[in-house]
């Protein structure tokens, strides 16, 4: 068994996070720990964001988080920035996307559960991301426990993503963490037959149920899967290694699919 992903894959973790320290700036210690942990496991670059879980997030709050992401990008070229916005204030959200994507060369937009991915309120954000040619990575799941259902009433599942692909056909969507908790089998069954070139799902999350990656490959195809950990590094690498994929499949999932998304960018290169 491999103890890390082979260097030749140049693996990109498509879904991870950095945090602010007590001073409101990048927690450099945690960022370094993440870089070191990724190095141990053969993960080359890491896409990071600072999402907020509140039902409504004021622009001045998420600007602070995006500043932390910017600090991470300056701390190490291995960090790829994603900017978080909340569509409740579309004018502010679009300005922040413009600032982060165009001026600061972040790679994509991160959404949480303030609205479903297919909500009408998301239209300005979706169209802005489309115009810039950058992906929208969204927190997602099909949780069935009462506590999570109560805490996340607008948690998008695969059904919402299928609807969003119809509603926003020009936008590249990344469904977050198939292993992030919730009924992943339900999500995969819902995704059967999907053929959009704008749909991706990342493999992150702490859930390492036997067969989860293999089933994901068999359902949506390895061209639509992105390697990711969302902070669960050994879980992310371990379940990928467990799937018994070919090097071609591994290369697509770990690097080439993400690179293909980045190549669709319509503004300055990352």
């Amino acid at each position: 068994m491999w103890c890390q992903l082979p260097d030749e894959l140049a693996a990109i973790d498509a879904h991870n996070h950095v945090r602010a320290g007590a001073d409101g700036k990048l927690d450099v210690g945690r960022a370094e720990a993440l870089l070191q942990g990724c190095s141990r496991l053969g993960i080359d670059r890491i896409a990071v964001s600072v999402p907020y879980t509140d039902s409504v997030v004021a622009p001045e709050r998420y600007r602070v988080g995006n500043e932390v992401v910017w600090q991470a990008m300056q701390h190490s070229p291995r960090f790829i920035g994603f900017c978080f916005v909340d569509a409740h204030d579309p004018t502010a959200a679009l300005a922040e996307i413009e600032h982060c994507i165009v001026e600061r060369k972040m790679a994509g937009v991160k959404l949480y559960h303030q609205f479903f991915v297919d909500a009408d309120e998301q239209r300005p954000v979706m169209e802005k991301a489309s115009s810039l040619g950058v992906p929208v990575l969204m927190h997602a799941g099909k949780c069935t426990d009462p506590a999570t259902m109560a805490a996340q009433p607008r948690l998008s599942n695969a059904g919402h993503f299928r609807a969003a692909l119809e509603k926003y056909p020009e936008t590249i969507l990344i469904q977050g963490h198939i292993g992030g908790g919730g009924d992943w089998e339900w999500n995969l069954r819902t995704l059967e037959g999907i053929d959009s070139g704008n749909y991706y799902i990342d493999l992150s999350g702490s859930v390492i149920d036997a067969g989860i990656v293999r089933r994901s490959v068999d359902t949506v195809g390895c061209e639509r899967l992105l390697f990711a950990t969302d902070g669960s590094l050994e879980e992310g690498v371990g379940k990928l290694l467990a799937a018994g994929l070919s090097m071609r499949e591994m290369r697509l999932i770990c690097h080439d699919n993400f690179a293909r998304i980045m190549a669709r960018r319509k503004v300055c290169d990352v």
Binding site: C3, I208, D209, A210, G238, L241, A242
Partner: peptide, 14 residues
């Protein structure tokens, strides 16, 4: 058999 074994092996190794 609920979970894959690889993550545990990686945890111990590293």
């Amino acid at each position: 058999p609920f979970k894959e074994i690889e993550p545990s092996l990686l945890k111990l190794h590293h």
